[in-house]
Design a protein around this nucleic acid. Structure first.
Length: 855
RNA sequence: GUGGACGUGGCGAAAUUGGUAGACGCAGCAGACUUAAAAUCUGCUUCCCCCUGUGGGAGUGCGGGUUCGAUUCCCGCCGUCCGCACCA
């Protein structure tokens, strides 16, 4: 009588049923409590990969559970549809980025629907469509009007072959990742968002995000990088100016000195030199009349781009011959170097060097034979400095009025003096930079600005939005197609009407993903969002995605939300109340060595037969080596396509597998054995669902207890996103029901089992629900509540330890008193034997748990 | 370099405030059913020792410590992974 669960029929039937019933459409006007569950929307690269499946399955379990628990759930899906891969495809294959992207969206939408996710497809959006990016342009103009957007010239990585700007991560060993051309540093006028205005609140806000992983909060904290210290001016010494060295500066640029920033003002008396960044205006000015310095600066620029070799890079400097006066010791002057380790874009681009208490300064001082005055002594005992700078705690020495003070007191003292005497101020410096959003790319949101020779950069009037990206572009010429489009950029100035040019840069795609969660909540045609409706849903209750977005996306979205809040558009400051970062899906690799000096030849899982003992290549039957389980990547050929498994094993088995075994924050190794196991579970539940014997109406207290304990545990596990534990509990419940004799409790348990596993395997649950004659959809069935009376047993197992080692155990009534327990323990044969006649020195009784005899 | 996380069977992993380590799954072994296979079901499965039992011992990366009792708390090592990286 038992049949196999027909996943293909069930998927088609129940997906259609949910759609017909509008089961997962979120109702803005619902009086129910709201739950906004969101997974990071995908880039439409072409196909769904298993990482997506894991991500969206987790979100789906939460969304379906919340819905069953009586929440009005918003669980939307959309497409992060602008970006470079579409342009690369256009260049490589001659297709249009728009057509390529929209085809991919259609394919991936079909795949997602096939997995049966409880998504509100009526709210679907794609960032590449004018109804989305047009509203983004409107928000950009609002931020511009509020002074949160500005334009400045800044250095960029320029690929002279592709004629485009590259992000830092697209520059590999100083070359463009696509063209291989040596990247130039160019200065371009670019648009910036004032994220640094929000540095303090973005940092403080992290403390309120209790439902974020500690790790992500730390990463953001470090990225924002708050440092407090002293900013002060070094004046050039009269002597060096008088000697004529000062005239080495061009006549047009004769500053009296320069500013430096330090977090260690306590070590002022340990200064032995000052150093400027190679790109510092004074360095550049000096280089105009100094070929040696110009060569040194060129050398500094050449290196440095590659990531790893910074560590080993030698500290190098160029003595400018200039000197500056120590602000606390006017009699002392310090030599001024241009040094390769000083960064122009942090602090003021200039430092004072205190070799005794800073490792880089020490390396530099040793190389150029500079003095190393010690000013902090551990425990007040001065000790010579050799190869390592002393950066620990201690008290000040050799520092006049600071002597004997602690580091912190000395810092405060120096800042107070500097401020009183007017030569410096206590300052906060941030690592965070303003967000440059200009991209010299076609496939992105056009920046809604018109450049007029007379009026400057003029915002496009809102009535003229959206600025539509033209479709008739070509990619046969390198560079930005918008720039060489024949007509698009030529427009009249909105202010004076004279011929003017559109901005041809587009916005960083991180802008698109900085507010899509608001547009999901409310998407009117005539404005970016309806404030009242958006505020009903926001913040997102549970956001789920990969750690790779721990910094940029999550920081930008937090900034954008706060910016909208500041300009009075939205009463929300933090967009994501709960964040969960899931692990990657990994897979074994299969390879054959190709001999000394050659990379191994990799094979995809589809080309390999895997048994428990090893693997063989299907085409020749000979073995291949089974390698490490690593992140899926095209180069290692260990990528699996979920479609194949959905077709063969069914969406439910795939969903069940990605939730099983590994904790969701950890990596999950994909394996055929694992998916086989998931398929077996689906069939086991199906057999139970088919078994409609109700028994003789008797109840089964033991099974009832098991059921209600399972309800309590599974509910708690899903609540904490511990899906692997919920899965284990469901296996236990299935085993218990299978073993239980027929009874009314057993029949009820099967029905409850279906509700409990419905968030994970929804098609199976619906099919079983219908099979058992339940009315309506299981998707509408309320989540069970555990009966507290059934969660407690009347007997407990008490463990007996002697000196902490387990010796025996016995059943006792719950809550039995201490004397009775002790008497039982002392009478037990194993205890008598183990004690060998000795009386225990001490008896520790933990009620209802254990007894420990100290012998 | 620096900040952080983690380390438990053959494998993925469980283990409320410190209280019976290894739940659950995978793989494996044995058995039942079958002409046979698949499927399914039952049992075993941390390691070592022996007198094979209702037996003994060890065991959560390594070394210490606190405690009646430590996978859990503290200190020091070793290893793996991740972030940032010349940040003054």
């Amino acid at each position: 009588m038992s049949s196999k669960f027909d996943h293909k029929a069930a998927e088609a039937r129940w997906q259609a049923a949910w759609e017909a019933a509008g089961s997962f459409a979120a109702n803005d006007a619902s009086p129910k409590p709201k739950a906004y569950v969101l997974e990071m929307f995908p880039y439409p690269s072409g196909r769904i990969h298993v990482g997506h499946v894991r991500n969206y399955t987790m979100g789906d379990v939460i969304a379906r559970t919340r819905r069953a628990q009586g929440y009005e759930v918003l669980h939307p899906m959309g497409w992060d549809a602008f970006g470079m891969p579409a342009e690369n495809a256009a260049m490589a294959r001659g297709v249009h980025p728009g057509g390529w992207t929209r085809d991919n969206i259609a394919a991936m939408r079909t795949q997602l629907k096939g997995l049966g996710f409880a998504l509100d497809w009526s709210r679907e959006l794609a960032t590449c469509e004018p109804d989305y990016y047009g509203q983004e342009q409107a928000l950009f103009l609002d931020l511009l009007a509020a002074g949160l957007v500005y334009r400045k010239e800044s250095a960029v990585n320029w690929d002279p072959v592709d004629m485009t700007v590259l992000a830092n991560e697209q520059v590999i060993d100083g070359r463009g990742w696509r063209s291989g051309a040596i990247v130039e540093r160019r200065r371009l006028s670019q648009w910036f968002l004032r994220i640094t205005d929000f540095a303090d609140e973005l940092l403080d806000g992290l403390a309120t995000l209790d439902n974020w992983p500690e790790k992500v909060r730390l990463m953001q904290e470090n990225w924002i990088g708050k440092s407090q210290g002293l900013r002060f001016t070094f004046h050039f010494s009269p002597a060096c100016l008088a000697s004529g060295v000062g005239s080495s500066l061009p006549a047009s640029f004769r500053p009296a000195g320069f500013d430096v920033f330090t977090t260690r003002p306590d070590t002022m008396f340990g200064a032995s030199f000052a150093a400027l960044a190679p790109d510092h205006p004074i360095s550049l000015a000096l280089a105009e009349n100094n070929p040696g310095l110009a060569a040194f600066i060129a050398e500094c620029r050449a290196g440095g781009t590659a990531t790893a070799d910074i560590e080993g890079q030698e500290k190098k400097g160029y003595d400018t011959g200039l000197s500056v006066v120590h602000p606390l010791e006017p009699g002392i002057t310090l030599p001024v170097f241009v040094a390769n380790f000083v960064l122009m874009d942090y602090g003021t681009g200039a430092i004072f060097g205190c070799p005794a208490h800073d490792q880089r300064d020490l390396d530099f001082a040793r190389k150029y034979m500079l003095p190393v005055p010690r000013v902090v002594a551990p425990d007040g005992v001065d000790a010579p400095i050799h190869a390592d700078a002393y950066t620990g705690r201690g008290t000040l020495i050799n520092s006049r009025f600071l002597n004997g003070l602690s580091i912190d007191t000395a810092k405060a003292e120096v800042i107070t003096r500097a401020e009183t005497q007017g030569w410096g101020t206590g300052t906060t410096v941030w690592r965070l930079r303003d967000w440059g959003v200009s991209r010299q790319r076609y496939w992105g949101t056009p920046i809604p600005i018109i450049h007029c020779d007379d009026c400057g950069a003029v915002p496009v009037p809102k009535a003229q939005l959206p600025v539509i990206l033209p479709e008739d572009v070509t990619f046969d010429v390198p560079g930005n197609p918008l720039d060489h489009h024949p007509t698009w950029k030529h427009v009249a100035c909105p202010v004076c009407g004279k011929p003017a040019r559109r901005e041809t840069d587009t916005l960083d795609t991180f802008v698109d993903s900085s507010w899509y969660f608001i547009r999901f909540a409310s998407a009117p045609a005539n404005q970016p969002f309806d404030r009242a409706i958006a505020e009903k849903w926001l913040p997102v209750g549970q956001y789920i995605g990969g750690v790779e977005h721990a910094i940029l996306h999550l920081l930008y979205a937090r900034f954008w939300t706060r910016a909208l809040n500041r300009i009075g558009r939205l009463g929300v400051t933090e967009p994501f109340a709960g964040l969960f970062t899931q692990g990657m899906v990994t897979h074994e690799t299969y390879a054959r060595a190709q001999g000394e000096g050659f990379a191994p030849l990799y094979f995809s899982p589809d080309e390999v037969d895997r048994s428990s003992s090893g693997a063989t290549l299907r085409s020749d039957g000979a073995p291949v080596e089974v390698g490490r389980i690593i992140k899926m990547s095209k180069s290692k050929k260990n990528v699996v396509d979920p479609d194949r498994y959905i077709a063969e094993y069914g969406a439910d088995a795939v969903r069940w597998f990605v939730l099983s075994d590994s904790p969701p924050e950890r990596d999950l190794a994909w394996s055929v054995a694992g998916i086989d196991g998931a398929w077996r579970f689906v069939q086991r539940v199906w057999r139970l669902a088919e078994d409609v014997i109700a028994g003789n109406g008797e109840t089964d207290l033991k099974l009832g207890r098991t059921l209600h304990r399972a309800i309590a545990a599974i509910t708690a596990d899903i609540d904490r996103l511990q899906f692997n534990k919920a899965v284990a509990r469901l296996y236990e419940l299935v085993s218990a029901i299978e073993r239980a004799p027929a009874s009314s409790t057993r029949a009820e348990s099967v029905t409850m089992l279906l509700i409990l596993c419905a968030p994970m395997v929804p098609h199976l649950a619906e099919a079983g629900w219908a099979l058992r004659g339940q009315s309506g959809l299981i998707a509408d069935a309320p989540w069970p509540v555990a009966d507290a009376a059934l969660l407690v047993d009347d007997s407990v197992t008490i463990a007996i330890q002697i000196n902490g080692k387990l010796k025996d155990s016995f059943e006792a009534a719950k809550g039995a008193d201490r004397a009775a327990i002790e008497a039982e323990v002392m009478a037990r044969e194993k205890v008598i034997r183990a004690l060998e006649g000795r009386a225990p020195k001490k008896i520790i009784v933990v009620p209802d748990r254990l007894v420990n005899l100290v012998a």
